[in-house]
Design a protein around this nucleic acid. Structure first.
Length: 420
RNA sequence: GUGCCUAUAGCUCAAUGGCAGAGUACUUCACUGUGGAUGAAGAUGUUGAGGGUUCGACCCCCUCUAGGCACCCCA
């Protein structure tokens, strides 16, 4: 057992293979964000503790944030989520920004949790928000973006669903059942956890919150009603819009979707695999007042976040990540001997100047070893430049995937490579 | 913070309390101008750490450390 200094618990090392996967996922979400016309932004990775004090779920900040004192004694927090930073950035330039603002971001976040499947202490997160609109069209647009992403990584409606609900609708239904206003918050949190405990335990907890038996029965039938959304004109329009965008197959109403974060006020949604084998892929919703807590004028919006961990687990499980090594276009230039090294070095340099990705052999190991190395770094092509070729002004172009090779005149090489 | 499980070669894992092994990867060679195959040879361990029981411990017991999984929470 080697005695190497350990990495920090809950962090991941992105070796090139893992980095390629992360970059691939990044490329998909970037493409989707841009296809909806969203602008790229980012904030600092460290913020004052104060920024989070009045926001977020309480546990998120108090129990899960990395907080430390800087050398001046200020309390600094490694960002556990982006929304407060977004709120601060929006509030600071509230009078100059163009609204509604469509922004997206991808970066690292930290939460002090016990690492487990799908959960790490350092993770990357895609955040995408539409700020400055209360319209249901905005909510539908974000959900469409989420569906678009799932499609773009090869997850179809048979594999993942986007479960949605509306907190306002739930509020109405709670009123109809006669639930006291002061019970609502705790009850919403309980509804959010209905799948996580046996039915009897859940019933018991609901009764402890002060519901009577009749209210409990009414609540349970409400939660089990797949048609409940039709009572909400807003949700009806929401569904209509998503039908128009061709995303209806991903949609699934679920009255139990509440979401833990306190700032959601309207439509909320999360994406899951249909078997609920994995954790949520992404989650988000409509917030009535993004910037109120950081000192700006009230501003509504809608957004969601997707962590990189669960989506990658799922894509790997389903074999949806393409063989990224096979897509590399690296050209490997061999060095035949000490005498021919100069020609190989010049050849490599000229190809790089022509914008090819080129790896040049360092020494002059046996050709077999060089080719084996080229194969193992997944180079697409290899060039052999030995005395015979040099004498004829040629080079051997070898396709490492098909194992075919041919002699080409050196002067035609760049042109021929561009045609491939 | 609570609970359960795990720790043996670089990796994946074997080994009734009785000589610590296999597969794979690695190195070299067959192959002095050609890579994924094949064959041959080679190298690899304080069995996570510390203590205890025993004639004898990878195996049983205790402590610690690390990791995984679940709860909590959440992306």
């Amino acid at each position: 057992m080697k005695n190497i200094v350990k990495s920090v618990k809950g962090t991941r090392d992105f070796y090139p293979d893992e980095m390629a996967k992360r970059q691939w996922i990044y490329s998909r979400l970037k493409a989707v964000s841009e296809s909806f016309g969203y602008q790229h932004y980012d904030g600092p990775c460290i913020e004052t503790l104060e920024l989070y004090a009045a926001k977020s779920g309480e546990e998120l900040v108090k129990e899960q944030a990395f907080v430390f004192n800087d050398r001046g004694g200020d309390q600094i927090t490694l960002r556990p989520e982006l929304t407060p930073t977004l709120a601060r950035m929006i509030a600071e330039k509230q009078n100059e920004l163009v609204f509604p603002a469509r922004w997206w971001s991808f970066g690292p976040f930290w939460r002090y949790e016990r690492p487990q499947k799908g959960r790490t202490r350092e993770f990357f997160q895609w955040n995408i928000d539409l700020i400055g609109s209360d319209a249901v069209e905005a909510d539908a647009e974000l959900v469409a973006a989420a569906c678009s992403f799932m499609r773009s990584v090869g997850l179809g409606p048979d594999q993942v669903k986007l479960y949605f609900n509306d907190r306002e609708l739930m509020d109405q239904e709670f009123n109809a059942i006669g639930i006291n206003p002061e019970q609502k918050g705790a009850l919403l949190r309980l509804v959010d956890r209905i799948d996580k405990m046996p039915a009897e335990v859940w019933d018991e907890k609901a009764l402890q919150l002060g519901l009577n038996e009749g209210q409990l029965a009414a609540l349970k039938s409400t939660l089990a009603d797949p048609e409940l959304w039709k009572r909400s004109p807003k949700l009806q329009q929401f569904v209509t819009l998503l039908n128009l965008m061709g995303e209806e197959a991903y949609l699934q109403y679920d009255a139990r979707i509440i979401r833990g974060l306190d700032y959601y006020t309207g439509i909320v949604f999360e994406a899951h695999d249909v078997n609920k084998e994995f954790r949520a892929i992404l989650g988000g919703g409509h917030y009535g007042n993004l910037v109120g807590n950081v000192g700006g004028e009230p501003l509504p919006g809608v957004g969601f976040a997707m962590g990189d961990v669960v989506i990658q687990l799922m894509l790997e499980h389903l074999g949806k990540i393409p063989p990224l090594n096979a897509q590399k276009e690296t050209i490997f230039v061999t060095v035949f001997s000490e005498e021919t090294q100069a020609q190989s070095v010049r050849l490599a340099a000229s190809l790089r100047n022509a914008d090819f990705e080129v790896v040049l052999a360092l020494g002059n190991e046996k050709l077999g070893k060089q080719l084996k190395f080229a194969d193992r770094i997944f180079a697409a092509k290899a060039l052999v430049l030995g005395p015979d070729e040099i004498a004829k002004g040629e080079v051997v172009l070898k396709d490492l995937r098909t194992r075919e090779q041919k002699n080409i005149l050196l002067k035609d090489l760049v042109g021929d490579l561009r045609k491939l």
